[in-house]
Design a protein around this nucleic acid. Structure first.
Lengths: 202, 202
DNA sequence: TCTTGATTTGACCAACTGGTCAAACGAACG
DNA sequence: CGTTCGTTTGACCAGTTGGTCAAATCAAGA
């Protein structure tokens, strides 16, 4: 509706290149810490050329965040009420952990935005996100009521899954510093399966 | 050793005022997102006056981080090998959660620094922090070996405590958006006690 | 009161940053 | 070959920002 899809193939390609470069830079330095020159450099083109494809620095950032919000919640959306409860929840944990491992820049971009008070996505949080979480919390509450998992606060369960998985992306340098550089993800996965397995069992 | 304590009482007071203002601004906007003018405003003094007490913007930031690092880990230091294991760990969780509730700015300042790759405190992470965590991990491993708590990966246990407690400070806007503005901390505390209680019981 | 040293600030500067613009370039098509 | 239209960029600009400096103010002791 608002964005008439870019026409030519070269436009498509350059917009993608810019968004990729923007993700790289924004996730590393935050919005205010990033400069158009940095992004232009990373994208291998001149600053005015950036602004030929995007109206402003903010436009790049906004498009990244919106695109991210859309896909970031897919694993939660896929949690099915009619699946096996423990399996559904543990699968959600696993998929979120893999996203932290495979898309740490996206996680950090998001973390940066929330840390600064979510100035650009607060509406999405209070709207779509809240609706989705409330719906899934109801599903979890149902599982508890049916005695299929332990009685837990569904909202805090979801928060804890977010916190524990994103931590490995957002605090990567700290985790690796403490572990002496070792890959934290294998250990994280079995720890999280143990943690949530114990929590949920009736 | 390195810092000859400020002499006069007025210096003491002004440095404190500036650090307080710096914490306020840095925790909200990050290092690059904050300006000396903002900090001077918040401190109620002129910009050159700031720089009479601190050599640079970076000096304020560094002093905040160093002071923070010192006290931030006190709850972990206080975990005693000869206490009751579950009590010791649950007390650590509680104290960390209270810190997230009572000192969210400090938590966000730290999160900002780590997110950007910890450019100013990487040495501390790989040095003192790693040493402390390794020592406490050994204590926890001992508890597990003695059958006093379940067998868990001690490092990931500590990471999970950090992640779950700091999440309520760092992602405050998101948590409150999803909860519709309600205070998350009471619910968080009982959820976390349940979570770690289940995990640790033998 | 006068002197001295600490404190405070208005004015200023150089570097940086987001963004503009006119001109140049390139490819497809007649 | 020449026109046209999409693409690219060097040069530039105004606002911001970290930091400087000399001058002004203040407080306390002689």
């Amino acid at each position: 509706m608002s964005i008439p899809a870019p026409r030519t193939r070269i436009q498509e390609k350059n917009r993608t290149t810019i968004l990729e470069a923007g993700l790289d830079v924004f996730s590393k330095f935050g919005f205010r810490g990033s400069t158009l020159d940095q992004i232009a450099d990373a994208a291998g083109m001149s600053k005015p050329n950036l602004l030929y494809y995007f109206a402003s620095k903010e436009a790049i950032h906004t498009e990244l965040l919106q695109g991210l919000l859309e896909t970031w919640l897919d694993p939660l959306r896929d949690m099915q009420a009619d699946g096996d409860p423990v399996t559904e929840i543990l699968n959600y944990v696993r998929r979120k952990l893999w996203m932290a491992r495979d898309f740490p820049r996206e996680s950090r971009l998001f973390a940066n935005e929330i840390l600064q008070g979510a100035p650009r996505i607060q509406d999405d949080l209070q709207g779509d996100l809240k609706k989705l979480v409330d719906a899934k919390a109801e599903v979890i509450r149902g599982w508890s009521a049916d005695g299929k998992i332990a009685a837990v606060d569904p909202h805090h369960l979801i928060f804890s899954i977010w916190a524990l998985t994103q931590h490995y992306a957002d605090f990567d340098v700290q985790v690796r510093a403490v572990l002496g550089g070792a890959d934290p993800f294998p250990g994280a996965q079995s720890y999280l399966e143990q943690l949530f397995g114990q929590l949920l069992r009736v």
